[in-house]
Simulated scan of single mutants.
Amino acid sequence: MSSSFNVSVFLTGLTLSLSLIMAIGAQNTHVLRQGLRREHVAAVVAVCALLDMALMTLGVSGLAASLGEYPRALDALGFVGALVLVVYGAQALRRALQPSTLQAAHGGAPVSAGRMVAQTLSLSLLNPHVYLDTVILVGAVGAKQPAGSQVAFLLGAGSASALWFVALGYGARVLTPLFAKPIAWRMLDLLVTAMMWTIAAGLVQRSLHL
């Protein structure tokens, strides 16, 4: 196992995680709403980031361990992951052509920290896409990284998730006017498309051993 930290693999994890998480959705709206209300922001951010990290670790370590002795199966999974990234990139491109906005209501009665954690967990875990994105997709890309570099990949992916939720939760009052502009989401989705398709191309190359 290599003792050096693979910066390239770290950046792959970082960009993949960011490209998956930077989209309008229930979880982002929930974090933004709590940021605007300044209510249990730390708890919400921590739950979202730690849950992402746990699921991504499960995916990368589980797939790497279970398929490590079956390189052809791992290559096939790499192709599947690349295909999913291409489809996700196409969806982001379509969103860029018809941009939406991210809005979060300020109202609502205050709730306890425990109830807010439970709401955040249910909102995240009951979304089937979270498992496809973190366990399967991130797991497939992470398992295809060079031997000994999975930790760097997970650090990159986890850092992206943590940075995004911290920025969204604590920067809500600053970011909301930006997120309310369709042009901002158009540029963001174009960036997401480029990142996803670039990672997909690299995944295909590794699966073909080019």
Rank of each mutant, 00 (worst) to 15 (best):
S2V: 11
S2F: 10
S3H: 12
V7K: 11
V7S: 08
V9I: 08
G13D: 00
L14C: 05
L14N: 00
L16R: 07
S17R: 01
S17I: 03
S17Y: 06
M22E: 03
A23K: 11
I24K: 02
A26S: 15
N28P: 07
T29L: 14
H30R: 08
H30M: 12
V31T: 02
L32E: 05
R33H: 04
G35W: 03
L36T: 04
L36R: 05
R37F: 00
V41F: 04
A42P: 04
A42E: 03
A43T: 07
V45D: 00
V47C: 05
C48L: 05
C48K: 01
L58D: 01
G59K: 06
G62P: 10
L63N: 10
L63Q: 13
L63P: 12
A64F: 03
A64I: 12
G68Q: 05
G68K: 07
A73P: 08
A73N: 04
G78C: 03
V80P: 04
A82F: 05
L83C: 11
V84H: 09
L85W: 05
Y88P: 11
Y88N: 10
A90M: 14
A90T: 13
Q91W: 14
L93M: 12
R94G: 14
R95D: 12
R95C: 13
Q98T: 13
S100Y: 07
S100R: 14
S100W: 05
L102T: 09
Q103F: 13
Q103I: 12
Q103D: 12
A104R: 07
H106K: 14
G107E: 11
A109D: 15
A109C: 11
P110C: 12
V111M: 15
V111L: 15
S112D: 12
G114M: 13
R115S: 11
M116H: 11
V117K: 06
L121E: 05
L123K: 09
S124G: 05
L125K: 05
H129L: 14
D133G: 06
D133K: 13
T134F: 12
I136K: 01
A140D: 03
V141Q: 08
K144R: 13
Q145G: 01
Q145K: 00
A147W: 01
A147C: 03
S149V: 00
V151H: 14
F153P: 06
F153L: 00
L154V: 09
G156L: 01
G156D: 02
G156Y: 05
A160W: 00
A162Y: 04
V166T: 15
L178C: 05
L178S: 07
I183A: 15
A184L: 14
M187G: 09
L188K: 01
L191Y: 01
V192H: 03
T193S: 10
A194H: 00
M195E: 03
I199H: 00
I199T: 06
A200T: 02
A201M: 06
A201S: 10
A201R: 13
H209I: 07
